[in-house]
C-alpha cells in the first residue's frame, strides 16, 4: 500500500475489529501463508472428514474489558463463543480445550471467579474441558486476561451449511434481539446506571441445534453474529453466496435499551455484537417451521424473519421505515464513542 494516506506498518487496534482491516490482514497474510482445503472453506469452524464422520473444529481468543459485565464474564464468553461456532456449523459440541495468558498482577480471586464461571457453563452443557495451558505475561494491566478456547464437535448428518447454498428467495432469520452484548459492554465502559444498561445475551445456542436438527436439510447456512454484528456477518454471507440480502429495518428485533445506548454513542446497532444469537438463511418454504421451532425455546422467543435473498452482487441492503434503502458496509475501524 505505497499510496496509503495513513500508512500502517504496525498492527493497530482496528486490525482486530472484524471489519475491513481484519479482512485485509486475513487475505494478505494468513490465508496465503496457511492455505489448504479446510481453511479455505472460511467457515466459523473447519469441517473435517474422518471415517465417514464429519468433525467440526474451531478456535477463538477472548479479550474483553471489563472482565465481568452485566449478563456474563470472560469465562462464560470463552465457552459460549466456541460452542456457538460449532452449533452454527451444524455440529454437536463434544470437547473443549482452554489456554490462558494470565496478566502479571491479576488478583487470584478474580481468576478463580473466571475459571469457576467457565466450569459452570461447560458443566451445564455436559461439555468436558479436556486440556489446557497457562502462561503468565505482562499483558499491559492486571485485568488484561487473554483466554483462547478450541472446540471439536460432530457434524449432524443432515447438515450441509455453506453460504454458497444461498439462492434468491431464501429467507434470513435471527433468533432474537440484536446487539445486546456489544451494547452491554459499551454501557459498562460508559458507567451507565444499572437501570439504563442492557444485559449481555451471552449464552450457548445448543437449543438451535436440538430444535432444528430435523430441519437441517432446509437450512442453507447459519452464523452467530458476534464481532461486527449482524451487518458484518451478513455481508460475509452475501459476498460468498453471490446474492444480495435485503433487510427490513422495522422487522429487526432490538431492545429499546440497546437502541438508546447506540443512539447515545452514535454507533449503528447493526454492528454491535450478539453472543447468544444465531442468524440463519433458510428455504422460503421452511421459514415458518424454523420460526415455530425456535420460538418454542425461551432463548428463541423473539426470533423473526428479517430479510430475503435477491439476485445480486453480494451486497446487503437495509430498507428503512421511511421507504429509503441504504447499503450496509464493512466497518473500517471499531465503533467508538463520538465527541458530542
Amino acid at each position: 500500500m505505497s499510496t496509503s494516506n495513513t500508512r500502517q506498518e504496525v498492527i493497530v487496534s482496528s486490525h482486530g475489529d472484524g471489519g475491513l482491516l481484519t479482512h485485509e490482514l486475513l487475505q494478505r497474510i494468513f490465508f496465503p501463508a496457511f492455505s489448504n482445503q479446510w481453511l479455505d472453506q472460511a467457515g466459523d469452524a473447519a469441517v473435517l472428514t474422518l471415517d465417514n464422520q464429519r468433525l467440526a473444529m474451531t478456535t477463538d481468543s477472548f479479550v474483553v474489558s471489563p472482565l465481568f459485565f452485566p449478563g456474563g464474564d470472560i469465562g462464560k464468553l470463552a465457552v459460549c463463543g466456541t460452542v456457538n461456532d460449532l452449533i452454527v456449523s451444524g455440529a454437536q459440541p463434544l470437547w473443549l480445550s482452554a489456554a490462558f495468558i494470565l496478566p502479571e498482577g491479576m488478583p487470584r480471586r478474580m481468576l478463580e471467579a473466571v475459571v469457576q464461571s467457565m466450569a459452570d457453563t461447560a458443566r451445564g452443557l455436559r461439555l468436558p474441558i479436556i486440556t489446557g495451558d497457562t502462561k503468565v505475561a505482562d499483558n499491559g494491566g492486571p485485568e488484561n486476561l487473554f483466554i483462547s478456547t478450541t472446540g471439536i464437535g460432530l457434524v449432524h448428518t443432515g447438515a450441509d451449511l455453506h453460504p454458497g447454498n444461498i439462492e434468491p428467495s431464501d429467507v434470513v432469520i435471527v433468533s432474537g434481539t440484536i446487539g445486546d452484548h456489544g451494547a452491554a459492554i459499551l454501557s459498562a465502559r460508559l458507567g451507565l446506571a444499572p437501570q439504563d444498561s442492557p444485559t449481555s445475551d451471552c449464552a450457548p445456542l445448543n437449543f438451535v441445534f436440538t430444535k432444528l436438527q430435523p430441519l437441517f436439510p432446509e437450512i442453507k447456512v447459519m452464523r452467530d453474529p458476534t464481532r461486527g454484528g449482524i451487518a458484518t456477518t451478513l455481508i460475509e454471507l452475501a459476498s460468498s453466496g453471490k446474492v444480495d440480502l435485503v433487510l427490513e429495518e422495522s422487522s429487526i428485533p432490538i431492545k429499546p435499551k440497546v437502541k438508546a445506548v447506540a443512539d447515545l454513542l452514535g454507533v449503528d446497532p447493526y454492528y454491535l455484537a450478539s453472543e447468544g444469537k444465531a442468524l440463519l438463511v433458510v428455504k422460503q418454504e421452511a421459514a415458518d417451521a424454523v420460526l415455530r421451532l425456535l420460538r418454542e425455546h425461551p432463548q428463541g422467543e423473539e426470533s423473526a424473519v428479517i430479510g430475503v435473498a435477491e439476485p445480486g452482487k453480494g451486497n446487503v441492503y437495509l430498507r428503512t421505515s421511511l421507504g429509503g434503502t441504504r447499503q450496509l458496509r464493512m466497518l473500517a475501524g471499531t465503533p467508538l464513542p463520538r465527541i458530542c
Binding site: T6, R189, T334, L336, R338, I339
Partner: peptide, 27 residues
C-alpha cells in the same frame, strides 16, 4: 474514540498507540 484514526500530516494516534504511545480512549 473519534480522534484515533484521524490523519495528521505525519501520523495518527492509532499508529502512535501501536508503537507504544500511551493513548487512552475515554467514554
Amino acid at each position: 474514540g473519534d480522534m484515533l484514526r484521524v490523519p495528521g500530516t505525519f501520523t495518527t494516534l492509532e499508529t502512535e498507540k501501536a508503537r507504544g504511545a500511551k493513548v487512552h480512549i475515554c467514554y
